[in-house]
């Protein structure tokens, strides 16, 4: 049970927060993350267009080495988490992160909406929560 990274994408497809939690250093630079976020945003929209039945956007992507979970809020902000392939109940964790985001980012008077998140309290609380999840059996 490991959560290896967290991304937050605003409603325009811009990456506003990215953090890796695995002990291994990430190989991608910030520009590549921006491109990936933009790509995902586009694919997420197209996936509703190519649906054989009326559908929402992508919720889970399965790959051979990891799983990517996406939670879209009513306002269009997307929370994305990558975990190992066996991870379950990730939706719950994403909603919890959304709660932390509401408390420490949206209620921060110095934060400009849709801009990159630079809030110390958010960092601390996300890290504490993810650590708790990763260390639980």
């Amino acid at each position: 049970m490991t959560i290896s990274s967290l991304m937050i994408i605003n409603k325009a497809g811009g990456l506003i927060y990215q953090k890796g939690f695995a002990s291994t250093p990430s190989k991608l630079d910030s520009n590549e993350y921006l491109v990936l976020a933009g790509t995902f945003h586009g694919v997420h929209t197209i996936s509703t267009r190519i649906a054989p039945v009326p559908s929402s956007g992508i919720e889970v992507i399965e790959a051979s080495t990891f799983k990517l979970h996406c939670f879209q809020t009513q306002t269009g902000t997307k929370f994305i988490m990558t975990t190992d392939p066996e991870h379950s109940r990730v939706e719950l964790h994403l909603k919890k992160i959304y709660e932390i985001y509401s408390d420490y980012v949206m209620k921060n008077p110095f934060y400009t909406p849709e801009m990159p998140i630079r809030c110390e309290l958010f960092d601390v609380n996300v890290l504490r929560y993810i650590k708790g999840v990763n260390e639980s059996p």
């Binding site: 290896s4 990274s5 890796g20 695995a22 291994t24 990430s26 190989k27 991608l28 590549e32 990936l36 790509t39 995902f40 586009g42 694919v43 197209i46 996936s47 190519i50 992507i61 790959a63 051979s64 080495t65 990891f66 990517l68 990558t82 190992d84």
Partner: peptide, 17 residues
């Protein structure tokens, strides 16, 4: 387009993990 983009995305992210 979707599967091609996702294939590349997964390839990039799996090197991270």
């Amino acid at each position: 387009g979707v599967v091609y983009s996702l294939r590349n995305l997964c390839r990039k992210l799996s090197t991270v993990n």
